[in-house]
Each structure stands twice: as C-alpha cells, then as structure tokens.
Design a protein around this nucleic acid. Structure first.
Lengths: 249, 249
DNA sequence: TTTGATTTGTTCAAAAATAATCAAAATAAA
DNA sequence: TTTATTTTGATTATTTTTGAACAAATCAAA
C-alpha cells in the first residue's frame, strides 16, 4: 500500500473521529508504527492535520473553522417565507445589492445556485456565498465588529460606483407616517446609498416591524418600490399599498 | 493485447477501486510488471491517473482542494517565528497593510491586543481580528473564493486612497536576480499597490521561498525595505543583504 | 522534582519499486 | 520479401520506501 492510499485512509478516519493514535493506525493500515509516524509527519507538514504526541488531530478542531455567528434566529419561519418570495424575484444575470440585515442574510441559502452578482457590505453574506455560483463584490471600508459589516465614507462611495438591478434591504422599522427608521446612522446611510443606485428597491420586513418607528427616521417611504413581508392583507398593509408601495407576501 | 486495451481496463479498475498496484495489474493484464509501469507512466503523463510508488490512484482522490487554514499550517513554526518578529515592529497607533498571504495571516494572533489600524484584503484576517483591539479597514472589490481575498481594479484603487506606516506582505518567491515573483497576477498587483503606499515595506518569507522564482516575476527587490525570515546567516541571506535589503531573523 | 514509561528523531540496512539500457519479438511499411 | 519501427521483456543500477535499533525528548504519575 502506497503513501497516497494510506493518506486517504488516515484523512477519512480523521474526518470521522477527529483524532487518531499511531498504534491504532499501524493496525488499521497493517504497517509499522514508524511508517505511520512518517506519514503523519509529512501530512502535518502539508497542513493536512495537526500532529499530537502519539497521534494526530483534525485541523478544524485545533484551528476553528471560519464562521460568522448569526443573530438569533428570531422569527425564522417568517423570515424564510419572506426570503423565498424575494429570491424568486431574482433572475440569472442580475446584479443585486444586499445589506447587512438579518433577514437579508437569510436570503443567501435561496440564491446560492443563481448566476448573479451580489454586491454587499455584510461579512456573513460574503462568507455564506463564498463557495456558490454567485459572484460576490464586497464593499470596502471600516469594519463594524458588532454588525459584522462594512460602513463609512469609503463604503458609501464604493456603492455609488455601482449600478444594480435590484436592492434587497432590511430596516429597523417602517411606517406610513414616518417612513423608514433605523437603529444606527451607519445602517441608514448604507440603505440610502443602495436604494439610490438600484433600479428596483425591495424592503424585506417581517410583520413585527411594520408600523413601528426606531429612533432614527431617515427616509420617506418613497425610496422603496416593493415591500416583501409575511403579514397578510391587513389594515397596515393596505395603508402601505395606498401610499404607493407594491406588496409581496 | 495492445496498450489501448490495457488502458481501458486500468481505467475501469481505477474507477471501481480507486487505486491499484503494479503486481495486481500485471496479473490481470497477463503481462510483465515493466509493461504495466510503462503504461501507468504514460497515462500519468496524459493526466489520466496519479502515479504512486507501487501503483496508481484515481486523480479525484488525490486532488482535494487545500483550504486556507491548511496552507497556513504548513511550516507553522517557521511562520510563527517570522510573525513574532514582524509583530514586534508594530507600535500602537500604526496604520498597517496586510495582504492575503498565509504567513501574513498568522500575524493576527500576535497583534490582537495592539491599538492599531489594519487595512487588508484578506477575509481570514478580517475574521481573525474582528473581536480584537485592532480597528479593521477592509479593502473592497471582487471576492476571489479560492484565495478568500479581495482583488481587482476597485481593490487597487481603494489601497491608493490610504497611506500606511508599514506594509506586511507575502510573496510566492524571491531571489536577488529576479526580485519578487507570484503565482497570480491578482496577488502581484495587490502587493505592488500596498508597497507603493506604505512608508516601510516588510516582506514575510520563510526559508523555503528564498532564492526561488515563481512563474510571474513582477517587481524588483528594491520595492521592499525589510525581509523578515527564519533563515539564519547563510549565503542567500548575505546576498540579499548586499543587495540593500535589511534582514530581520 | 524525580522516576519510569512512552513517544519521537536519527541512523542504517534490507527490501521493494523504478529508471535506464539493451536485445528480442511483434507490427507496419516499402 | 526485406527493412524500419514499435512494443515488449530481461538485466542491472539507482532511488524510494520501509522497518529495526537506540539515544533523546516528552509526558504522566508519584
């Protein structure tokens, strides 16, 4: 049995169990311990595993995989409903903006296989679409650790350079009277920039946010074209509709 | 039996089992081992299989993509040595560039507690510094999934807007004769941009890359100021020193 | 901290696999 | 048919891989 074959087996065991010891491998591979040690040595040098005393460990256990923790999955079902509808609006070839809202993030799993370009300031979105059919353009600027997103002058300017077919945005609150409101100026600025440079602006908004205002009101209702929500035909919805916003639910 | 017929059989066995050894094939094909070896040799040259000692393997088993985490684990000790030295050059208040090299990535753990600003095009670096004392500026542009980094025109332009105290860069290879070389044009472009906009340019380079040239040579030695390496006083090092590069090791 | 057991690195020799060279056999071309 | 070319197998030298032996390093328990 060649080194390459042993390597495959070792990797497989490591993938299943997470760790192995030399003696165990020597038995499984029907070879001597010294050979196993040599194999583990070269594999460690190639960065395929982490060598421990007496054995080896899977790298992912040592060096935690890169992943972004998402905001609590509050209203997960509602959000998924909204995202399904929003994703259906996208066609292959589209260029779309996606902001750093938690609802917008959930769209990722519904657009992985689309041949589109996504321009975003959200790190979790980038991470989620990294190995997908989607081509990603990341907006540059100051990283906001709390929101895991990019904001600031540079980011705004970056957005201004691009023209998108559609923008998919989140928001803190929305009402007919006061329009759009946010909890942070940074997010508000990004929302405005994206809306300004997109042909059609979709607002993804679960029913808990409808008719609510957050501390910073920053834009009139008119900057959005379509409101995607889970709320069925209610008074609030009809008010939005009357105010000239198209409703999808 | 002709080579073509044997080839078909070998490929079929390989497809079913994943690997074979020469002796086994010699029996099945009713021919000598030397002939089998010759067959495997030509087939490997044609890219039909991967030749191992004593046999062959299916290509799909061998060609597994190497993740960034894995790459950064190669020569880990050397890299950590280099990173410790590099990190010691940084003072609170500094603005620094960091590129998407795997050695540069390892610097993260040594600079987490510094009060500095890091400007980078590397997603792993951003992730690693997300919850640290470091303030991060992310370079925007097209995301390259393979390198987990941002490149392109927009990225280059972004860098041009900033002036940094220090740049910490990786490279594919470096030699006194040909200067800096890279495996991709994108990386080369980013290296050039960062070097151009930094007061002092540090090249982080473990000994395995010294004196080696990669396919794309893109810059003279003069664009770097300091070479940080693990290689102790050797001929190669002295040559670099004589060429005007400061050495840290 | 010391002790004892285990693991590892190193060196070396045996074994296995390969490369290189050359001649015989099979095949194709004139 | 003869001649040239390709393919194959045998032989030998070289390289790679493997396992054993032993000193050094490491770990765990007393």
């Amino acid at each position: 049995m060649s080194y390459q074959s042993r390597k495959q087996i070792i990797l497989k065991i490591l993938d299943e169990k997470g760790d192995v010891d030399v003696k165990e491998l020597a038995q499984v591979l029907e070879t001597s311990e010294i050979t196993v040690r040599r194999d583990l040595g070269t594999m460690a040098a190639d960065g395929l595993l982490y060598r421990t005393h007496g054995g080896a460990m899977r790298l992912s256990l040592v060096n935690q995989p890169i992943s972004f923790v998402q905001k609590s999955a509050v209203n997960a079902e509602k959000k998924d409903h909204i995202c399904r509808i929003a994703a259906a609006q996208i066609q292959d070839g589209d260029v779309i903006f996606m902001d750093c809202g938690s609802t917008v993030f959930r769209m990722c799993s519904f657009i992985r296989d689309k041949r589109i370009k996504v321009i975003t300031n959200s790190l979790p979105v980038v991470h989620e679409l990294l190995n997908s059919a989607v081509s990603v353009n990341l907006i540059g600027g100051e990283v906001d650790p709390e929101r895991q997103a990019v904001h600031g002058t540079m980011a705004t300017e970056h957005v201004r350079r691009y023209q998108a077919d559609k923008a998919f945005l989140g928001v803190g609150g929305i009402s007919v009277e006061k329009g759009l409101s946010a909890v942070s100026e940074k997010e508000a600025e990004m929302t405005l920039s994206m809306a300004a440079n997109a042909q059609v602006t979709y607002l993804l908004c679960d029913s808990s946010k409808l008719g609510k205002d957050k501390y910073l009101t920053f834009a009139p209702l008119s900057i959005i074209d379509v409101l995607v929500t889970d709320e069925q035909d209610s008074e609030v919805i009809q008010a939005f509709s009357k105010a000239g916003v198209q409703i999808l639910n």
